[in-house]
Nucleic acid binder design. Structure first.
Lengths: 333, 333
DNA sequence: ATGAAAGCGCTAACAG
DNA sequence: CTGTTAGCGCTTTCAT
């Protein structure tokens, strides 16, 4: 067991105040005599001392800790976002603690409550539903910044990707590359504004470039991203009902992977002349021989903007733009 | 601000004990009268009450929290491991908090200290060096389970993949598929026992299947996994000095990605007849037209074994096998 | 230059 | 069945 300040004080035969001043490096300021200082220091060196953050947190009513709730860790976009956010936090003296909700509203609620009870100083949340977002926004007095998803709840702070713009750009490029091929769109998580915006943007981009996408060529399921099997199944249905598409756009990388997986397991490989488009970026998209166009979200921009908002909220500074939208980049291959 | 137990007690005109019993659902056990219970409950419903974990933790000297230090979050193997471990923890009433060390020993030390100060009940660590592992093992009185890497430090508990066996299997299959092609091996993080074992296993697997791998055909750099650019550069050197390999084994997925990236950016695509082998698995390996053999680590097995060890340590139960090695699975395409 | 004491919110032991 | 009280280790204010 590590010693407490009190115990160190007893051993050094001084008061807790004196010990604390030495520990916090304020010995100069309060002119602690050198011999007391060194006596205390040697006791600490000998017996070891770790500050007990639990006690400090209780006293100060803050923890220098920020919470982050994400749907999945094994989704590259989120794990990159976390890494960047964690660095920003650490540089500013905050510890980020990350938990995973699997897009389950009940679990999300549970996790956020838990983080609040742990007295985090602020909360970043990728909400799984409008209700969760609304509830948290109402209930939580601590600073909250919503990431990646804004369910159009009044008065919240959020940082999201400009999915409409990203979709539009993708639509324009896909239309030009189609060369008469028929395009299908396949997606999951259809209840998310994120996905809805992506599709809306895509449609208008296609239309503006001369391709009217029929509604029946869009298959957006309400399934959760986690359901790899369901993605495969949806792709299977599509292929069986409408034939293997000559051009395909998927609403996110997990869906893309599910679709490709189906093609590979059913036909041995991805048809060579198939034009592909997807939201999200991954280095492996470079390794597929097919033409792949992808929308790369700016994880760094999102993280930095979100952290800056958080800091301002914590410090109660003026915050004018509380709903921020970050542009994505199109990657054409 | 959320009310404290004391404040609730005042409002209800009862004592803190009574309130606490109601809050903790022990009202039956201590036969709190129904009318007191309901009065307290309605006050709580009206004013809201969150338990202050900070205070509880201080009092009880435990936090129902476990810490996890990993080198990278954006590495699929680790993010999967985290997800699984987090679920195990939550099911047992523990909150997992994960931090990222970037394989920097100083940062790792800093992060572990920080977690200890936060009074985590136990620590999972993927160590970046023998020194870190040694130091932590010596210093930390809390339960520690080392994951993924064992630097052969005495007396520690660890759960790692059986890298020698995985390498051996990969070697056997690669040798059979070579058909006269010359094999090169490219890796990073060469200081890790993990990597050394993988290479050693590979060599003996190849040898036992009739292919003697010359030392000069193995390029293992000491570079950190993070250095994507360095992977590309190493591959560039290899290709320029020895020609584009007809068969290649990489020591991990990030290295694989770096190598493929070089080939694609230099030659437009991955040479069709190139035989590939790599440690780590990813669905995208299915989408490459080439033959790819990969070693899939058993993240679930590792996580479950590690958590079980942790629980036993926390409960001070007997623990006979403290160094566990989990088999991986070969994926042949 | 150093010390004493109150109190953060909670729990547990003991008292009635 | 309910109340009182003593800390957990730290910070802060006020004394000396």
């Amino acid at each position: 067991m590590t010693k407490s300040i009190f115990e160190i004080a007893q051993l050094a035969e001084v008061s807790v105040t004196t010990v604390r001043l030495v520990i916090n490096g304020q010995d100069q300021k309060y002119r602690i005599s050198e011999k007391t200082r060194s006596r205390i220091q040697s006791i600490i060196d000998e017996h070891g001392y770790y500050i007990n953050q639990t006690a400090r947190n209780l006293k100060l009513r803050k923890t220098q800790t920020l919470g982050l709730v994400v749907p999945r860790l094994s989704n590259l976009f989120f794990s990159q976002l976390i890494e960047i956010l964690e660095v920003s936090c650490r540089n500013a003296g905050y510890q980020l603690i990350t938990v995973c909700s699997y897009d389950d509203p009940a679990l999300e609620q549970n996790l956020t409550e838990n983080l609040i009870q742990r007295e985090v100083d602020g909360l970043f949340v990728v909400s799984s539903s409008r209700e969760s977002q609304l509830k948290l926004a109402k209930l939580c007095q601590k600073p909250v910044v919503f990431l990646d998803r804004n369910f159009d709840v009044d008065g919240i702070s959020s940082v999201t990707t400009d999915n409409i713009q990203g979709g539009y750009q993708l639509g324009c490029v896909m239309a030009k590359k189609l060369n008469g091929r028929e395009l299908f769109v396949l997606g999951a998580d259809g209840w998310l504004p994120t996905i809805q915006n992506r599709i809306a943007g895509l449609k208008s981009g296609l239309a503006d470039s001369g391709y009217q996408l029929p509604e029946q060529d869009i298959v957006i399921k309400g399934l959760a991203v986690a359901d790899w099997d369901n993605c495969i199944k949806t792709m299977e249905e599509l292929c069986q009902n409408r034939g293997v598409p000559k051009a395909l756009v998927t609403s996110s990388l997990p869906v893309f992977e599910g679709c490709m997986q189906y093609l590979v397991s059913e036909y041995g490989s991805i048809p060579q002349d198939m034009l592909l488009g997807t939201y999200d970026e991954h280095s492996s998209l470079n390794f597929i021989p097919n033409q792949v166009v992808s929308v790369c979200q700016n994880a760094e921009g999102i993280a930095e903007s979100a952290f800056e908002m958080m800091l301002k909220k914590i410090n109660k500074e003026e915050l004018l733009d509380t709903v921020r939208v970050i542009k994505s980049n199109l990657v054409i291959r």
